[in-house]
């Protein structure tokens, strides 16, 4: 696939390798899905059978797996409610149970941010104090009422925050991390391709 990156798919065998291998990945991935189903059923079935702590929840998980999967797999020719199209059981369960539950989990993030910010911004030392001051300035800039307050002090303050804190220090550090991480990933990929690193296989 690395070699394929440097060739066009049209008129070159090497250029066509990448889409071909990606198709294989999809096919293999489809088969491995069965592994996931086997794992989830085995773990939860064993817990229900042994009446382990919280076995009722495990039973609910097992029932959910089959209730959502079976109607989605049945042919739409049998009933309009099978398959994954509009009006199907799968779609209804997804829209009215799955999606709201995921949205609820995501919405909880706001409270977690508040508690994490409270801990991170405590002025314990010079660095934490600097972080606290920077955070207050950026928060003021992001909140409309705070921005009005900053504008009342000096009309250029929001622009300075944008240029020097977000576009300067923040962006520079992020890019440094990204460059370092990209090099690390490339070096690890090379070590894996050459068989130098086999720790991901337990060697």
């Amino acid at each position: 696939m690395v070699v394929s990156f440097f060739f066009r798919a049209e008129g070159s065998f090497l250029g066509r390798i990448e889409p071909e291998i990606l198709s294989w990945v999809t096919i293999v991935g489809g088969f491995t899905l069965l592994l996931g189903v086997v794992s989830i059923v085995r773990v939860n079935y064993t817990a229900v059978k042994r009446k382990a702590d919280g076995w009722g929840y495990k039973l609910a998980t097992l029932i959910s797996v089959f209730v959502i999967a079976i109607p989605a797999m049945l042919p739409t020719g049998w009933s309009d409610q099978f398959g994954r199209g509009d009006g199907s059981i799968y779609k209804w369960l997804f829209n009215y149970l799955d999606a709201p539950m995921m949205a609820t989990m995501f919405a909880m993030l706001a409270f977690y941010i508040a508690s994490a910010a409270f801990r991170a911004f405590r002025a314990r030392n010079a660095e934490a104090t600097l972080l606290l001051i920077t955070a207050i300035i950026v928060m003021l800039w992001r909140v409309p009422m705070g921005e009005e307050f900053l504008l009342s002090i000096h009309p250029d303050i929001p622009g300075w925050i944008n240029t020097y804190i977000m576009g300067g220090a923040n962006l520079a550090v992020q890019r440094g991390i990204i460059i370092g991480a990209a090099l690390g990933a490339a070096a690890m990929a090379l070590r894996i391709m050459l068989g130098i690193e086999r720790t991901y296989m337990g060697k």
């Binding site: 991390i177 991480a181 090099l183 690390g184 070096a187 690890m188 090379l190 130098i196 690193e197």
Partner: peptide, 20 residues
Amino acid sequence: GEELYAASAYLSREPLLLGG
């Protein structure tokens, strides 16, 4: 970032990985 990718070499201390 890169510390994550260096972890396997760091923990194993294998010369080949450290060279990379």
